[in-house]
């Protein structure tokens, strides 16, 4: 059990997907303007990541044992179609949930965070339960990063920034500062 908690915490803060591994930068830079949007994007991400973990486990256990070199192709296609199907199911079953998450789902599908999750958990040889914990941890980490960034950027709108800095450059510097702060969590490694 301790191991599972460790996997979750490690993926969420120590090896934060966005701030330490640079995965999921598109949503991180693209939709981090408002806190509310960031939260919804984060939740949608956790959701897709859990689906991905399930799909990856099934593929790795039953399908790809015969042809491991087809991994990249298989992951991409299966994850993309799975998300598409689930999106249709949600639209039918729960229009409210669809309105909240719907527009984000197709955007996330071919996001590097999702494929990264699939490849990392394969490389580390995670089983089903470990993979699920890893996915939830990574999703939480992504949500934390998104929400932090969005909160900073909401305040930034009121700040008097020089003209030339009103673009991604400044956001990246902020991301660097956040990433620096998150490096502090690396100390958890020795404690575990």
């Amino acid at each position: 059990m301790g191991d599972l908690v460790w996997i979750l915490v490690s993926a969420a803060v120590v090896n934060n997907f966005t701030l330490a591994l640079f995965l999921g930068l598109c949503p991180f830079l693209g939709v981090s303007g408002k806190v509310e949007t960031a939260v919804r994007m984060g939740i949608a991400n956790i959701f897709v990541m859990v689906l991905t973990a399930l799909a990856v486990w099934v593929l790795n256990t039953f399908v790809l044992t015969a042809a491991p070199f087809l991994r990249i192709i298989a992951f991409i296609i299966v994850i993309a179609s799975l998300v598409q199907i689930v999106e249709m199911a949600i639209k039918k079953l729960s229009p409210a949930l669809f309105r909240a998450l719907g527009i984000f789902l197709p955007l996330i599908t071919t996001n590097c965070a999702i494929l990264g999750l699939a490849i990392f958990s394969t490389n580390r040889g995670y089983g089903l339960v470990e993979g699920l914990f890893f996915a939830v941890g990574a999703g939480i980490g992504l949500t934390i990063a998104l929400v932090l960034m969005a909160s900073i950027r909401e305040n930034l709108e009121l700040a008097d920034v020089p003209d030339f800095a009103q673009n991604m450059g400044l956001v990246l510097i902020l991301a660097g500062a956040l990433s620096l702060a998150f490096m502090g969590f690396a100390g958890l490694f020795s404690a575990a």
Partner: peptide
């Protein structure tokens, strides 16, 4: 990792 963000940030600025 922070160095990556900072370097690209400065280059973009």
């Amino acid at each position: 990792p922070p160095g990556g963000f900072l370097t690209l940030g400065v280059i973009l600025l």
